[in-house]
Each structure stands twice: as C-alpha cells, then as structure tokens.
Amino acid sequence: MKDMKYVAIREMNIGFRNPWAYSFMALFAVFMLSLLIIHTQGGVSGFSGTSGTMLNLALYLLPLMALMLGSFSLTGEKEEGNWELLSTYPLGTWPFLAGKYIGLSAVLLSIVAFGFGLSGSAGWLLGSGFDFLTYKQLLGFSIGLSLFYLGIAMLIGTLARNRWQALTIAVGVWFFTVIAWPSLLIAMLGMMPYLWIKPAITTLTFLNPAELTRLFTVVKLGGGSTLGPEYYKWMIWIRSPWGTPVFAGVMLVWIGAALAAAYGLWERGRGRG
C-alpha cells in the first residue's frame, strides 16, 4: 500500500512536469471554450446540439490523451531504464501498476477538471453556460471515459517496447474504437443474418468503452429515444436507479481486467528478465 502510494505520488510529480500534460490541457480547454462560444445561443441543457458536440469532442480528445499519457509513462520507464532500477527494489508489480494508474488518473482528471472548470465558469460569465445537470453528466462522462482508456493505456504500455510502438498501438486503438467503429460494425454485421445483428451489436458495445460511455451518457441526458425502438429496454434500464451503479460496476470490471492483463504480462516479462 505504501509502495503504491509512493509510485502514485512519483507518477504525479512526473506527470505535472510533463509538457505533454499541459499541451493536452490547453488543447482540451481551448476546444471546450470555442465550442461554447460557437453555440452561444441559449444555454446547454439535456441532449442538444451543443451537448452532442461536446460529447463528440470529448470522445475524440480524451481517449487519445489517456492512451498516450498512460502508455508513454509505462514505456518511458522501460526506455529510460527506470524500471530496471526499480526492479532492484522490493517493489511488487501490482503496487507499481496500480500506483501508476492512480497517479496518471490524478493527472488526467485534473486536466479534465481544468477544462470543465474553465468552460463552466466562462459559460456562466458569458451567460450561455450549461445547465447544472447536463454539466454534471458531461463531467461524469469525461471522467469515465478517461478512466476506461487509462486502463487500456496500461495494457498498451505493457505490450509496447518503446514509445513509438506505444504511439502506434494507441492511435490504432483510438481510431478503431472511436472513429472506425460504426464503419467496421456496419461492414461486418451487414453480412450477418438479420436476427444476429442486435445481440452482436450489444455484445460488441460492451467491449468498446467509448461506445458504452457515450450511450450511457446519451440516455442519461434524456436522449435515449434517439436509439430507436430496438433499445427501448436499455433506455428504461439505464434511467432506473440501478443504471449508474451497474455502469460503474462494468467500468470497474473493465479496468480491473485491463490492469490484470497488464499485470500478467508484466510479471511474465519480469520472470524472463
């Protein structure tokens, strides 16, 4: 536990010294603000044009940020030889990975918090801000998305040998889960028998954190009816009091699984080394 705390604080130290973190923060904050200014008419409440665009902006930026920061942090340890040094200490893999995850989450979430803080207060001052519930929902969405992708980032950082590899895999994962997802699914499922489509899409959605978080948020914002009659039960279910805890549960399982896989791989590497 102490080790984990040590690693986490070390990670935060490195993270807040990292110029990448600040450039990501600037990028995120500037985009949030400019979207707010573009949509100055009225306010932002519920699932509307503005919150839809915000949602998509977060979907573009946050996974990429999380994947890059996370995987670079791990591969950096390998490349710079820090890991070899650390392995001489009595430091377990689990405290190391978990500490890394926690430290990186702190850095990433403060980036998100800064972006949201800026747009929330600026929107208020400009008189075209968010409705509080929508703001809360979008913030929750961004946090969830960051944590999900940070989990994947740990796995990528474990798999990749250096930063270049990490970058390649990170961009690949990002493109696959965020941009190419509908195209791929439409192409693949188009060949399947009609009745298989919905179960297949449902299963695959649970495997894609971007889609999962997006759909959860769209329904929570009151936009569930856009999903059409096919998903009526989902809509009811997500909006029930059980929706949020179960989503949090799925998230925990997901991140836990990613970290566990990273742990397994890391341990194997250690055994060989």
Binding site: S45, F114, G117, G120, S121, W124, G127, F130, F132, Y135
Partner: peptide, 23 residues
C-alpha cells in the same frame, strides 16, 4: 425569443470555479 432559463446556470458557474480552484 427565448434564452434558456438561468436556473442551474449559477450552480454550474460555481462548480466550474470550484473545479478551477482545485486544479
């Protein structure tokens, strides 16, 4: 003819400032 209600805006503004302050 309609600017959305200001209700909840202030809360968002305050929440935003708190977030900014914390970070």
């Amino acid at each position: 003819n309609q600017i959305g209600d200001a209700e909840g805006r202030t809360l968002t503004g305050i929440a935003g400032l708190v977030l900014l302050g914390c970070t």
